[in-house]
């Protein structure tokens, strides 16, 4: 009985969501994933990257992950975020039914290439509300400077 009540609208709308995502990917224009290391739809974690004059900011959407078990590393200009998210679904039995299993579970790894002018030694990472924010400052020399005219 629940099957029909819960599953139908869920799948129906997630199908729309999928189509929308695919259209965004195809015709999204600015900001659409074009990176060689981009993962397809359903990728975990999803990553947004922003730059400012002082730093490069990587936001990884990692809900429900223990920050102590996250492995964030930089090697030759590549930032890697790896870890594991355990499944909290109960084992199937007569008394338990699973209707939706959309949340990611298992090991994950994402790699992002960093620009040349960042300082990997000064990386900061913090985790809040399920989002890992990795902040990589640009080197002093690369930051915009105002040159005084004498």
């Amino acid at each position: 009985m629940y099957e029909s009540l819960l599953r139908l609208p869920v799948d129906f709308f997630s199908e729309f969501d999928r189509i929308q995502r695919e259209l965004n990917q195809a015709f999204g224009g600015a900001g659409a994933p074009t990176s060689i290391r981009a993962l397809g739809r359903g990728a975990f974690p999803r990553v947004n990257i922003g730059t400012s004059a002082k730093s490069v900011e990587v936001y990884a959407l990692l809900p429900g992950v223990d920050p102590a078990k996250l492995d964030v590393s930089v090697d030759r200009g590549l930032l890697t975020i790896a870890g594991e998210r355990a499944s909290d679904l109960p084992a199937a039995s007569d008394k338990v039914s699973v209707y939706a299993d959309e949340r990611f579970a298992g090991k994950f790894k994402r790699t992002v290439s960093l620009p040349d002018d960042v300082d990997p030694a000064a990386i900061e990472a913090n985790y809040r509300d399920g989002v890992l924010r990795v902040s990589i400052p640009r080197r002093e020399a690369a930051q915009p400077q105002r040159i005084e005219v004498k």
Partner: peptide, 28 residues
């Protein structure tokens, strides 16, 4: 969604665009 962003940040690569999550379920 409320995420702190530094001043003057420009998005260069975006996989999640919408700042709002919403979902409705019918309870029996």
């Amino acid at each position: 969604v409320a995420i702190d962003t530094p001043e003057g940040m420009e998005p260069v690569y975006v996989e999640t665009r919408s700042p709002v999550y919403r979902r409705t379920f019918n309870l029996s």
